[in-house]
Structure formats: structure tokens, C-alpha cells
């Protein structure tokens, strides 16, 4: 480096401010250890590696779609859209209609929502607004535990405890007093749509209540105090100050619970009865999309049979995806930024 150039710094700019002169020989410059160039190659390799991992997620979802779409082609070409309207599921004669499964999935999930939503919101309201402080942690932990129990254990419990209970006490009672609705008639097997709905409800309560809790906590304290200052009772404060502002988020939690219920397999398979029929009564056995795949996939002989099952899987995937995305958007609208403007 030419020292001369430095000694007379030709400074431009509005205000050259001179300091001391640069020494002819900077004594310490040699001390700089001129080793490698700073590992830029390693940085690039590392970046490529983690990018690869991130892209793997995209690839997996792409793969899921590809597998489902390509392997259901056979069935799609054979039945077209009628596949989803046909009521006849007859592997022996290669006739496949998925309507009973769609019906079973929808009805069991809706039943689960009807049972779960009030309870889950009640639990969330209690935990965030009413519970003494010391009880909040344990309550949250317990609901979390409920979420950690594997589906197969719920199913096991349902077979040996819930179903006998329904058969002996609940169903006779329902048939006697509510039989006129047509929803509760026929022989009380225990096993059937009602059992599936109840076990699903138990399984989705933790999701709905933890998300409701989350969005309720996101509602600012000022909202609460503002309503309380008007002389509202605690319930009025919760209703007007909290629930109204958290509405969209709670809806998101409910829909997320729906997504889980739609895709739930094992517990439902173990108690729903697995019969591809559409019946009005909730006592009757049914079948869901996830259950039919679970039961018949590994025994499916014949390409069309397998393809039909995969088409059921594709439909299930698309429905849960739409439901989950909707739920995410609703939850985000509350927890990130201002409460959603759902009303003027």
C-alpha cells in the first residue's frame, strides 16, 4: 500500500475534518493474521443445507398432492364426480361410491362440534376469567394432557367404558324422551355415530379451549376494564369485553377442532361400527372417510379398489386443508394485530 497516497488524503465531501497524520509505517499492520478469507464458502454451504431442509417441507406437501392425485386417477376416470354421490361401496363388483363415508365424516364431526364447543368455551372462560390464579397452571396442564393421549387409547377407552355406558343408560333414556326427533331411534348398540361423536368431542375440546384461551388472553386488559367501569357484571364484561372481541379467533379455534375431527382415524374406527350406510338415527352405525382407509387399505385387492380408497384420501386431504387454512387465518386475525373487524 502506497503510504504517500494516505499521507495527503484527498478528502472530498462537505467538511473534511483532519485528524493526526497517518504514520509512515503502521507498526501493527503486520500483526494482522492473514489466514483464510473468512469462511464464505462454509457460509454458502450452510445456507444451502438449511434451505434444502426448508424446501423439503414444500416438497413433502407437493409429494402428498402428487401421490394422492396420480394414484386416484383410475378411480376418477371410472366414476368421475359421481364417486362422491354414489351410495354403493361394493369392492366385490368394483362399484365405489363415497357418499356414506362423506356423510359419516361430516355428521360425526358436526356432532362433536355441537358437544365440544360450549364445553370448550366454558373451560376457556373459566380458566382465563374466573379461576383463581393458582388453578390456572394446573388446568392448562390438564387440558394439555388430554391432548397428549393417543387416539388409539381414546378408542380403547371408548370401546370398554363409553360404549357400554351408552348402551345401558344413555341411549335408552334418549330413545324414550327424544326418540320422536328421529335422531335417537333403533336398537341401542352403543357402537355407532353417537359414540363416535362423543369420543371426537372429548378429543377436540383441548384444541378448541386452548386456542380460545389464547385469543381471549390476547384481548387487551383495557377492553375489560372499560366494560367493567360501566358497571357491568363479570359475565357482561366477558360477553361484551372479551368474547365479542375474540370472536373471530374463537371461530378459528372451532374450525381447527373441526379439521382435527374430520381427519381423526383410530378412535372413530374403533367405535363407529364401520358400516357404509346413511341413516338418520345417531344410534345407527356409520363409516368415515378416514376409517374406511384405515380398515380396507392394506386388504384392498385390485387396482380400482386401491385407487378409490386413495381418492377418498385425496378428498379428505383437500377438505381438511381448506378447513385448516380458514382456521389459521381467523386465529391470526386476532392474535396478530388488531381484533378482526367482523362487524361494522
Amino acid at each position: 500500500m502506497a503510504n504517500g497516497a494516505l499521507r495527503a488524503p484527498g478528502m472530498t465531501g462537505p467538511k473534511p475534518v483532519a485528524g493526526p497524520q497517518l504514520a509512515g509505517q503502521t507498526s501493527w499492520a503486520s500483526a494482522i493474521r492473514l489466514k483464510d478469507a473468512g469462511g464464505q464458502l462454509a457460509d454458502t454451504v450452510f445456507y444451502a443445507l438449511v434451505l434444502f431442509c426448508a424446501l423439503a417441507i414444500l416438497a413433502v406437501v407437493g409429494l402428498v398432492l402428487y401421490e394422492l392425485v396420480s394414484k386416484s386417477q383410475l378411480s376418477w376416470h371410472a366414476f368421475g364426480f359421481k364417486f362422491f354421490l354414489g351410495q354403493n361401496w361394493d369392492p366385490v363388483n368394483d362399484q365405489f361410491g363415497a357418499l356414506p363415508f362423506i356423510y359419516g365424516t361430516v355428521v360425526s364431526s358436526l356432532l362433536a362440534l355441537v358437544l365440544a364447543v360450549p364445553l370448550a368455551i366454558g373451560v376457556a372462560v373459566f380458566t382465563t376469567e374466573m379461576s383463581p390464579r393458582w388453578l390456572r397452571g394446573p388446568l392448562a396442564f390438564t387440558t394439555e394432557l388430554l391432548a397428549a393421549i393417543p387416539s388409539v387409547i381414546y378408542g380403547l377407552w371408548a370401546i370398554f367404558v363409553l360404549v357400554p355406558l351408552l348402551r345401558q343408560y344413555v341411549q335408552p333414556w334418549l330413545a324414550r324422551y327424544l326418540g320422536w326427533t328421529g335422531l335417537f331411534e333403533g336398537p341401542p348398540y352403543g357402537i355407532g355415530m353417537l359414540a363416535a361423536g362423543i369420543i371426537l368431542a372429548i378429543m377436540i375440546i383441548p384444541i378448541i379451549s386452548s386456542i380460545t384461551r389464547e385469543v381471549m388472553t390476547a384481548v387487551s386488559q383495557q377492553q375489560r376494564e372499560g366494560v367493567l367501569a360501566l358497571g357491568a357484571t363479570r359475565w357482561e364484561m366477558i360477553r361484551m369485553g372479551v368474547l365479542r372481541n375474540a370472536r373471530a379467533g374463537i371461530m378459528g379455534g372451532v374450525i381447527l377442532g373441526l379439521g382435527r375431527a374430520l381427519g381423526e382415524t383410530m378412535a372413530v374406527t374403533m367405535v363407529i361400527g364401520n358400516r357404509p350406510e346413511i341413516a338418520r338415527s345417531l344410534f345407527a352405525p356409520g363409516y368415515t372417510m378416514a376409517s374406511v382407509i384405515a380398515n380396507e387399505f392394506s386388504e384392498a385387492t385390485g387396482d380400482l379398489y386401491l385407487s378409490a380408497l386413495i381418492e377418498v384420501g385425496l378428498a379428505l386431504f383437500l377438505v381438511t386443508m381448506v378447513v385448516n387454512i380458514l382456521a389459521q387465518l381467523l386465529v391470526w386475525s386476532v392474535t396478530r394485530g388488531a381484533p378482526a373487524r367482523t362487524h361494522a
Binding site: P9, M11, G19, P20, Q21, L22
Partner: peptide, 16 residues
């Protein structure tokens, strides 16, 4: 200001 004679320049900044 007048630079102190003999003082080394540690850092030189130009048009930053």
C-alpha cells in the same frame, strides 16, 4: 486543528 506531529493514524475514513 493541527495534527500532532508523529501521531499515527489508526483509522482513516473517507466519504462514508
Amino acid at each position: 486543528m493541527t495534527p500532532e506531529p508523529g501521531t499515527e493514524i489508526g483509522i482513516q475514513v473517507e466519504n462514508l
